[in-house]
């Protein structure tokens, strides 16, 4: 079974895995540095950015070949867009509320 996993694809996989592992560490330290007062906006904005999955949806929607795949892609584009626009907008709305004491 391993024989059919081309050498190139294994190397691709390892390099991508490296990015992933490093990003997990970055995520760990960046998230711990987020002030607890902003944990709700953190959730809203992570929600918005996890909709980067729209990249996959766009590829499916743009490609010819399978009509079903195209429509699944288009629905995914719409769902991810709800999240992108909604997520960033609601985060911006919340962050605008945080004000310092007037001195």
């Amino acid at each position: 079974m391993i024989a059919c996993w081309r050498k190139g694809s294994i190397m691709d996989f390892i390099s991508i895995l490296s990015i992933f592992v490093m990003a997990c560490f970055v995520g760990y330290y960046v998230v711990w540095s987020v002030t607890p007062a902003l944990h709700t906006p953190l959730m809203a904005v992570t929600n918005a950015i996890s909709s980067v999955i729209i990249v996959g949806a766009l590829i499916a929607a743009a490609a010819g070949g399978s009509l079903t795949a195209k429509w699944l892609g288009l629905i995914a584009v719409a769902l991810a867009s709800v999240n992108i626009f909604g997520g960033f907008a609601v985060t911006a709305r919340m962050l605008a509320m945080y004000k310092k004491k007037e001195r």
């Binding site: 991508i16 990015i19 992933f20 990003a23 997990c24 959730m43 950015i49 996890s50």
Partner: peptide
Amino acid sequence: IITGALVGSS
């Protein structure tokens, strides 16, 4: 991948 790792850790 970067986003997934960030959101997953968060």
